[in-house]
Design a binder for these strands. Structure first.
Lengths: 131, 131
DNA sequence: CCTTGACCTTCCAGTAGCTGGAAGCACTAT
DNA sequence: ATAGTGCTTCCAGCTACTGGAAGGTCAAGG
């Protein structure tokens, strides 16, 4: 299977797939013409990676998950721990964004947004500044 | 005012302040010894930048906001539009994270997380893969 | 006067995770 | 033979910093 087909079937850009090879997440074989020759197992790994990335796992997390995935001796507790940690990170991020959102929404609401220059948004950003 | 004091008073790392000078967000004067000499107005700009960044505005947004801040002829509508656009971006991000969170929470919940290898988290990530 | 230590300077490199583009070979169809 | 697509490698760039090395400057203490 050439990279184009893999790209189509996984939904990952070819560039990304090459990059994943570069950082040793997949190691496709090579055809005689120098083209990458992907096996089904490579396709599965890439699908796996695509999903894990879509869930927001970092590349390094993905590497770990992939290793666990390939390790039939793994303890599911390890996977769960990693996922849970990531879940907390997501929660933190959501909380942070929501706090930003609240402040910003308040400011946007307060700004009349017309052709005059006075603007509570800028006012708030400059708070603490004398001018 | 030297960079150390500015750093303390704005809460921004000195490195960041130098970086902001590098990309022309602030242009402090120089003392004879080559040290950066910040005026009050630089401090205000940096405070402004710190707050805008804390609200998640990109550096380029900050540049625009700063220009509007300094422009007494501005129309507040421009500021409001920028803020609103950013608000939408934040909403999108929150929605995306919440969707991730839901999926992940479900998987975490489903995984018993013990010393056995079977793990619905890995199972789901591999979905579509035969193995 | 000299040294120590804190503070400042510049410059280079690296972070995460790709993405774009150039130059050039391989393959397919006409 | 040629055109067009797909593949290859390599280099650079993106965001917004951050870390570290090598070295100049300044104030205080002995």
């Amino acid at each position: 299977m050439n990279i184009g087909e893999v790209s189509q079937r996984t939904g990952l850009p070819a560039k990304t797939i090459r990059y994943y090879e570069d950082i040793d997440l997949v190691t496709p074989q090579r055809a005689e013409n120098g083209y990458r020759a992907f096996r089904e197992s490579d396709l599965h790994k890439l699908t796996f990676l695509g999903r894990a990335r879509a869930l927001g796992f970092t590349i390094e997390d993905c590497r770990t998950l992939l290793a666990l995935y390939e390790d039939s001796e793994r303890e599911s507790a390890q996977v769960k721990a990693l996922a849970q940690e990531h879940l907390h990170a997501i929660d933190d991020k959501i909380a942070q964004l929501q706090s930003m959102r609240a402040t910003l929404a308040h400011l946007v609401h307060a700004c009349h947004g017309d052709d005059r220059p006075d603007c509570p948004i800028l006012g708030d950003l400059a708070k603490g500044a004398l001018r």
